[in-house]
């Protein structure tokens, strides 16, 4: 009699992501060897500067913090088969909302100011998603197109805000006034800038996991994501679920912006994001649209980002290595995405 080991499905899923990540490392190594560099040495150093020592680890987690947020924001939407590309826009609006609370309600104590800033950021992100969410839910307007386009609207709007009504005179670059000291998130491992935002997002991970696996909405959105026709016929209120998913995704995206403003920059800086919202897509796909998977994927990407910046200081490895690794990961995850998701998407959403 053969014994079969029963494993949850996500173990196999994450296993595939592990293969993807390893493949990226192999390709990166090949490129380095081909250009006459010491691949093994580069990876050892990368590992050391990303994980060894409290400060290095703190910097990796600091780089990972916004990515965990945007990964979660994207994962909840993708899990429902809703392709929200607008997390970047939600992040910008959330960042500005948090900054506004931070530099306006300066008299409040930290215990009130910080939760309020996060809440405002989440609401700003959710409100932003109301537009493409409702269009998708009730009028079946393709959310990929609307969210991509609305990103520009959101980013330009925040740019307008810090260039005109909230411009700080005397500074060459556009940025908002500085937030109150009470709004600045405490650091966890000084001198690293790693801050309370990590704790916030680490609390969010089990919350999202619980929501996806243990709630009615979670069941409905998973049903919608895996088989829209079945979901519809089994009584899932499809438009309501889509709208809720978009709002939730926007809310988490907004929190990501708040984390950067309250924890790192202490201001809203025009065009501050290097694409955290878009990175969320890579992370969600690499993390198989699960909360835990997104956490792991974000930390790996954060290690590349943080380690990559330090790597240049120690060895003659250009930051292009990091780009090669990231590009390879993106290539593999999108290849798989392209091969599987459109099939589900066109399996009769309507």
């Amino acid at each position: 009699m053969t014994r079969t080991v029963v494993r949850p499905q996500w173990v196999g899923e994450l296993g595939r992501s592990f293969v993807t990540f390893s493949a990226a490392l192999v390709i990166g190594a090949l490129v380095m060897v081909a250009t006459g560099r010491d691949a093994w040495g580069a990876y050892r150093t990368l590992f050391a500067v990303a994980f060894l020592g409290a400060q290095n680890l703190a910097d990796t987690l600091l780089a990972a913090t916004p990515l965990i947020f945007t990964g979660l924001a994207t994962a909840v939407a993708f899990r429902a088969g809703v392709f929200n590309i607008g997390v970047e826009g939600a992040l910008y609006l959330g960042a500005f909302a948090a900054a506004w609370i931070g530099f306006t309600l300066t008299g409040l104590p930290a215990g009130l100011l910080i939760p309020l800033a996060f809440l405002a950021a989440g609401l700003a992100g959710a409100l932003f998603m109301l537009i493409p969410g409702a269009l998708r839910a009730y009028l079946r307007v393709d959310e990929i197109v609307t969210t991509i386009m609305l990103n520009y609207v959101a980013i330009s709007f925040t740019s307008y805000l810090v260039n005109y009504p909230y411009a700080v005179p005397g500074l060459a670059n556009a940025m908002s006034p500085k937030i109150a000291l009470a709004a600045q998130l405490p650091r966890l491992l000084p001198p690293s800038q790693l801050n309370l935002a990590l704790i916030v997002v680490l609390l969010l991970v089990p919350l999202v996991h619980w929501l996806l696996s243990r709630t009615t909405l979670g069941y409905e959105l998973r049903a919608l994501g895996s088989n829209p026709i079945f979901a519809r016929w089994s009584g899932v209120p499809v438009p309501a679920v889509i709208l809720q998913v978009m709002l939730l995704s926007g809310f988490i995206g907004g929190l990501a912006g708040a984390g950067q403003v309250l924890g790192v920059n202490y201001r809203f800086v025009d065009n501050f994001s290097p694409g955290y919202g878009f990175d969320g897509i890579t992370i969600a796909l690499l993390g198989r649209n699960t909360a835990l998977g997104s956490l792991i994927a974000a930390v790996l990407l954060g290690a590349l980002r943080s380690g990559g910046a330090t790597l240049e200081l120690f060895v003659d490895i250009p930051k292009d290595l990091i780009l090669i690794l990231e590009a390879t990961i993106i290539f593999f995850v999108t290849a798989e995405f392209v091969l599987t998701f459109p099939r589900r998407r066109h399996a009769g959403v309507h």
Binding site: D59, P66, Q193, V269, G308, A309, T310, L313
Partner: peptide, 18 residues
């Protein structure tokens, strides 16, 4: 040494410190 980062704004303190 030229130090390039994909996120020079968010990594400000880290880059200077390192």
């Amino acid at each position: 040494k030229a130090i390039e980062s994909r996120d020079p704004v968010g990594q400000g303190e880290q880059l200077l410190r390192q």
